[in-house]
Design a protein around this nucleic acid. Structure first.
Lengths: 183, 183
DNA sequence: GTCTATACATTGATAGAC
DNA sequence: GTCTATCAATGTATAGAC
């Protein structure tokens, strides 16, 4: 082939993207190697020519997913205001499509049970997100509070059955966050 | 035996307690039947004389764990004030001992991927907790916001490596919640 | 009610042919 | 680099002896 190194890098990148979506939807532990490789048309054995282990894949997922969330938050919260960000993050469509959404409500609990390398990577990405939101809001404490609230809110709402209860929770958090900002 | 039905009920209750602790620490999916039964000195095959399936166990775990959290929150938040509850919930020891702590930061994400019966049970328990906190705070929206914030806060902090960053997050949320209450 | 044994699927990971 | 085949371990669940 003419560009073997490019093709391998592209396959690896595609694997990290697909694995991120699978992990956000069904969890990282339950994302099997065979199923992941099938999403790029390969078999399970080929996984280990791209990653040393599943744990290395987890580190790459965390790095990429939190970088993506950082870019989104940076864009959404700076182009207009906090309300814009909240409307997107606390929306019913974000609840329904975890594989397209922010990694924080989907992967945080599993990272909390992973080893230190994963927590280190996670912490780096999260601190960056916090800095971005702090710059927008002008308040470090409020930035941590808003991040915690929206992540908890989406996680809790996804574990409910009734859409009306979900919306009550999401809207309460939305209005509460806006109320505290206007003071 | 003289009290066979009592012994069976006690064993079942003990299994639900132990399974709840295991699930909060390592996750429900990774809590194997053999390992669970070993905690009460039995073998794996005996599990199915107490539960129809692992899913029935999950429902029992959710019911019991959220009832326990309800009692704790009810007691802590009413006997003094919001500060008392926040000091306990957002404490480093709560981070370090998930098996003894609230089920919400540990099990919510997994329930979000479970079937409707689990989400129904979860929603019932969570709504009760919300009602209790609403009665204490006098504000429905604030109650949802505080629950979401503390659950997100503990989840995120557990996924970090550096204790100083953990404490910065926990303390920021604590102070922010207290500030909003004094207005 | 609990035991051992077993069935059956799936997991992460490795070896060697191509 | 990818394939097939395979490994050892683990998962849920069932069957039948005691």
């Amino acid at each position: 082939m003419r560009y073997p190194q490019n093709r391998k890098a592209e396959t690896r990148q595609k694997l990290i993207e697909n694995a991120g979506a699978l992990a956000k939807k069904e969890g990282f532990a339950t994302t099997g190697v065979d199923g992941l490789m099938a999403t790029v048309g390969l078999t399970g054995g080929a996984f280990y020519s791209h990653f040393d282990s599943k744990n290395e894949l987890l580190l790459e997922i965390i790095k990429r997913e939190l970088a993506v969330s950082y870019e989104r938050i940076n864009q959404q919260s700076s182009q207009e205001n906090l309300a814009n960000f909240l409307n997107v993050y606390l929306s019913p469509s974000h609840l329904k499509l975890p594989e397209m959404g922010c990694a924080l409500p989907s992967l945080t609990t599993e990272v909390g049970r992973a080893d230190d390398s994963a927590k280190e990577e996670f912490e780096q990405g999260l601190v960056k997100i916090h800095h971005s939101l702090t710059a927008q809001l002008g308040d470090t404490q409020q930035a941590w509070a808003v991040i915690s609230m929206v992540v908890g809110s989406v996680s809790l709402a996804r574990a409910m059955k009734n859409p009306e209860t979900q919306n009550a929770l999401l809207n309460a958090c939305k209005e509460f966050a806006l109320k505290t900002e206007n003071e």
